[in-house]
Structures are given as structure tokens and as C-alpha cells.
Amino acid sequence: MHIDGWTLLLQAVNFLILVWLLRRFLYRPVLAVIAERQAATERVRSEAEAARQAAEAARQSLEDQRTALPAERDRLIAAARAEAEAERAALLEKARGEAEHALEEARSRLAEERAQALEGLQRHAVDLGIRLATRLLRDAPAAVLTVPLLDEACAAVESLSAPQRHALADGIDPVPVRLTIAAPLPEGDTARTRDRLATALGRSVALELVEDPSLIAGVELHFAHSVVRRSWKQALAEAKEEMTRHDSERHTADAVA
């Protein structure tokens, strides 16, 4: 058995050359493409991981939002409730004000209507009373009611001052006086009246008798420029006016109060 040294050396060199050649033409390119693929895979994996983390973050964010949702909902509901409560209170207040206003108006209208009704009723009562009094007074004897009033009228003329009485006479002689009566007077009363007036005026009196049933009872002494009234017609008219005026004043005072 013999070993050829040259062959051994050449084979060793050949092998080393083959190592270099395969390293150049096989390992380097194949390892490079494998590394490139691994890098690409790693890149894709990193991107997938980043996407996964992003998805996880999004999921976490959604989870947080979902967790916070009941609190937010409660807060919104509470706010809406408070707002609704405030609105309801405002509406109630407004409605209450409107109701009070309407009530006040109704009360005022009612009071006014009542006052008007009362006034009408009172006026009607006054009219009724006046009519009743008129009927009663008409049925009474003339002497009973009219004569005292005639005396009262004469007394009124007599109680005037001298200038006033002079003014009534107006410088005329005889003084024309129209005596309006509700019913015929006894003859003696007419003469007596003429005398009293002549005495009071200091002149003769031309008395003209006029009958006016509307006076109900009483007399009216018509001078040239003045009238002395002493009749139930006038008394009732004054009473009516007085009562009506009093009622109006009272109603006005009630309304103001």
C-alpha cells in the first residue's frame, strides 16, 4: 500500500478550491435568499404583530369605552332628568302663574259680574221700592201727605234771606207763582199758602194751580227763575240717586280692595 503524496496534496487543494467555489456559488446565494425570506417573514410577522397589537389596543379602547358606557349613560340620563325636572318645574311654575292669572281674572270677572248683578239687583230693588212707595203714597189722602209738604215749602221760602226772597220776586207785582200739586188741595190751604208767600215776599202773589200726579205727593213752587220742590217724587228721586251713588261707590271700593 502506497500513498502518493502529490495526489494527496492535489486532492486537498482540490477540496479547498471546491469549498471556495461552493461557498461562492451555492452557500452564499442560498443563505442570502433564505435570510431575505426570513427577514421578509419577520417583517410580515412584525407587521402582523403590530396589527395584532393595534387591534388589541383598539379592542382595549372599545372595552374601556364599553366599560365607561354605563357611567356615561347614567350621567346623560341624570343630566336629562335634571333638565327635564327643571323644564317641568318651569312649566309648572308657568302653568301655575297662568292658572293664578286666569283665576285672578276669573275672580275679577266674577266680582265684576257679581257687582254688576248686585248693582242691577239693587237698582231693581230700588225701582221696586220706589214703585211700591209711589203706589202706597198715591193711595194715601192728599191732605195727609201734601199739606205738610206745602207748609214745608212755604217755610223754606220764608227761611230765605231778604235778598234771596227779593230775587225770587224779581221785582214783579204780583209775583207769578205756579203751584204744582199732586192732588187737589183743600180751598183753605190754597189761600193760606198765597198769604204766606205774599207775606214772605212782601208783595202780592198770583198763584196758579197746576195738577201733576207725577209728583205722587207734595208741591213745587215755580218762581220766575227758581223752583222750590217739596214732593215725594223729588224725595224718591234723590233717595234713588243717593242709593245708586252709594252702591257704585261701595262696588268701586270693593273692586279696588
Partner: peptide, 25 residues
């Protein structure tokens, strides 16, 4: 230098392997 048969064969294999690798890669 005596060039023996295994050296010639190895050259052939080297050429084939190198050429094959170069073509394949």
C-alpha cells in the same frame, strides 16, 4: 507532478458541482 485518476475525477466532479450550483442559483 503525476496527475492521477482520482485527481482527474475530482476535477470533473468539481466542475459539475460548481456549474450545477452556478446554474441552480
Amino acid at each position: 507532478v503525476p496527475v492521477t485518476l482520482p485527481v482527474i475525477l475530482t476535477w470533473g466532479l468539481m466542475a459539475a458541482m460548481t456549474l450545477g450550483s452556478a446554474l441552480a442559483t
